[in-house]
Design a binder for these strands. Structure first.
Length: 592
RNA sequence: GCGGUUGUAGUCUAGUUUGGUCUAGGACAUCAGCCUGCCACGCUGACGACCCGGGUUCAAAUCCCGGCAACCGCACCA
């Protein structure tokens, strides 16, 4: 990611600062462990923030788990080292750094070699520390800032490492992504999906990344909540069954090809076009990108403030062959990631298959069994034995595994076949054409992975909800994510109004709404307080309520009011919060 | 990690240059009470802070050193 640069003197009143202050003051989030000075990269959610986050995650679950039938699991954060050795994280999730001995500037060792020694990326990535050191010395690379000598390259592993139990050799890592918790359970999950592809598994949970220098509040944390969705499909049947639902959605793509040209050109295409023109390699990936655009839109970010930026090959994670980052436009930080969309292919399952020895393949039956002729080599042990003696068994095994066509060609041409160091002759084997019936095939499913940071969604929702109206702050949350749904206020705190309002409060709580009761201060002040934490509706109990059991309902964003009877409230409010009706439908216009 | 700037109640801040009535002032918020008739009214009162640790000094919010944290820049960012 390239953050847009800001002028040196940032206005003290930019949105980030305001939201940071508001968040602390009203209890959305703040830096953890403050009484001990705090440490960067950890945040605590207060009562409102915790609720906001839950609501956003609930929305995500409604979309993916409830509507699309994606399976949700929950797996541990601490994971045995083996898992991340298999996943490639132990090798890749670290950065070789060198420090200039003179000016103390630090650089990525591999990047230096790419830049100054023209060693290509794939090569420099494979280098160990020694090789890096030697290469730096050989090419006489100096500090690009001050010309000073560079120190020893050192690796910085960005996973948190720990030991499991009292055994120091039992190494564990804090997971840097929730995805591996899904991959390692693939076999069971596949059974739970009734052994059918495609299917998806989602996990929402904490992940740990020991960032070198986290900043930007909720945007970059060392411990954060990640939502990983692994969607498994048959690479030979990559069609997305749900593409119809999104194919005409417009996506703003910032393609790698444009980036390479140094251009900031945005390609505006529909999902359908993006696939047809090959901008996005797999249908399911395009589908999820459209879903996430919609989701972020529903959190308050208009589509034109969003884009998908394609990662350049060397920017991509080790497991991905195509990645897009979903970004939103942030006033302070510029284009900022909310989600990543990686085509992980069969990388992870394949690696776990290799490292664990467990079969991660699925079996798919053909519609009709396929009959085909196959050349089969049958070793004749009676002849192999006398020729190869104690190696005979090994030769026979190799022979059965070898490419039959190749052997046949070789034997027809030269009368023998070289099987490694063994020379095998026609008499050692029988070459047969066999009819083979194949009823299905085994393969490792491919995976597209949308991955999103909950904390970033919370931040984006806050930033885009922030408004100032008549010098008053309000958080204009979409009504379905607002931490508190309804405020109940007696117009004045006397003459029985508080009692009546409390009754209404109890009643709405009983109906399952999240309701706040407030009788402190003037009515205007209470409205203002409520606006600042984004309560969508305010219900005021006044003197008429005592007479005819009606109340006023106030809209946070327009400050308009309608009047409605108390009995009608539960149903009306329920519909309102499900977006079935609008504010005006809640009652008759009212002028206070 | 480096460099620059900074660190005073829940929040924003005055005071730091030139050490001393600073027992640290104000505003907003919060709480208690009065008031209240639809958009931060007013009044009375209460709660509440010098980032942490050393040092210099008769005396430190103020000066010095170290740590921590934040912001900005560099670097990093699957």
């Amino acid at each position: 990611m390239r953050l847009n640069r800001l002028p040196n003197e940032t206005k003290a009143t930019d949105k980030f600062t305001i939201i940071d202050e508001l968040a602390r003051r009203r209890g959305f989030f703040w830096q953890s462990n403050d009484i001990y000075g705090g440490v960067a990269g950890f945040a605590t959610y207060g009562p409102l923030g915790a609720k906001l986050k839950q609501n956003i995650e609930r929305k995500l679950r409604e979309l993916f788990v409830n509507k699309l039938g994606i399976l949700e699991i929950e797996s541990p954060i601490i994971t045995p080292a083996k898992v991340f050795e298999a996943s490639g994280h132990v090798d890749h999730f670290k950065e070789p750094m060198v420090e200039c001995l003179k000016c103390k500037k630090r650089f990525r060792a591999d990047h230096l070699l790419q830049e100054f020694a023209k060693i290509d990326e794939s090569e420099s990535e494979k280098m160990g520390l020694k090789e890096l050191k030697e290469a730096i010395e050989k090419h006489n690379i100096k500090c690009s800032e001050c010309g000073g000598t560079l120190g020893e390259p050192k690796l910085f592993l960005t996973m948190f490492k720990t030991t499991i139990g009292p055994y120091s050799q039992a190494i564990g890592y804090g997971r840097p992504e929730a995805a591996q918790g899904i991959f390692v359970e693939f076999r069971r999950l596949y059974e739970m999906a009734r052994e059918k592809l495609p299917f998806g598994v989602l996990q929402i949970g904490h992940a740990l990344r020991n960032e070198i220098s986290p900043r930007q509040g909720l945007i970059r944390l060392r411990e954060f909540t990640i939502v990983d969705l692994e969607f498994f499909f048959d690479p030979e049947e990559p069609d997305c069954l749900l593409l119809k639902d999104v194919e005409n959605e417009k996506l703003h793509l910032f393609l790698a090809e444009a980036k390479l040209r140094g251009s900031e050109e945005i390609t505006d295409v529909t999902v359908k076009e993006a696939l047809r023109k090959g901008y996005i390699k797999t249908e399911w990936q395009a589908f999820f990108m459209a879903c996430f655009q919609k989701l972020v839109e529903d959190l308050g970010v208009p589509a034109e403030k969003q884009r998908f930026i394609e990662k350049l090959p060397w920017e991509r994670a080790h497991y991905s062959i195509q990645s897009f980052d979903q970004q939103f436009y942030d006033e302070r930080w510029g284009w900022t990631e909310v989600s990543g969309h990686a085509y992980r292919t069969d990388y992870d399952l394949k690696r776990h298959m290799e490292f664990s020895g467990q079969d991660m393949r699925v079996y798919k039956e053909y519609e009709k069994p396929v009959e085909r002729e196959q050349l089969v080599i049958k070793p004749i042990m009676a002849r192999l034995g006398p020729t190869f003696k104690k190696d005979a068994a090994a030769v026979a095994k190799m022979l059965s595994k070898a490419n039959a066509e190749e052997i046949k060609v070789s034997i027809e041409k030269s009368g023998h076949y070289m099987l490694g160091k063994y020379k095998v002759l026609p008499e050692h084997m029988e070459i047969q054409r066999q009819k083979v019936v194949e009823r299905g095939r085994r393969f490792i499913p491919h995976v597209v992975e949308p991955s999103v940071g909950s904390d970033r969604l919370v931040y984006v929702a806050l930033e885009y909800a922030y408004r100032v109206k008549d010098d008053r702050t309000l958080l204009s949350f979409p009504r379905d994510i607002a931490p508190i749904q309804i405020g109940i206020y007696p117009l004045v705190s006397k003459d029985g109004l508080p009692e009546k309002a409390s009754e209404l409060h109890e009643m709405l709580l009983d109906e399952g709404f999240i309701v706040d009761y407030d009788e402190a201060g003037s009515i205007g002040r209470r409205y203002a307080r409520a606006d600042e934490i984004g309560i969508p509706l305010g219900i005021t109990v006044d003197y008429d309520t005592l007479k005819d059991n009606t109340v006023t309902i106030r809209d946070r964003d327009s400050w308009r009011q309608v009047r409605s009877s108390i009995e009608a409230l539960p149903e009306l409010l329920c519909k309102y919060f499900k977006w079935k009706i609008n504010f005006e439908d809640l009652g008759k216009p009212f002028k206070g």
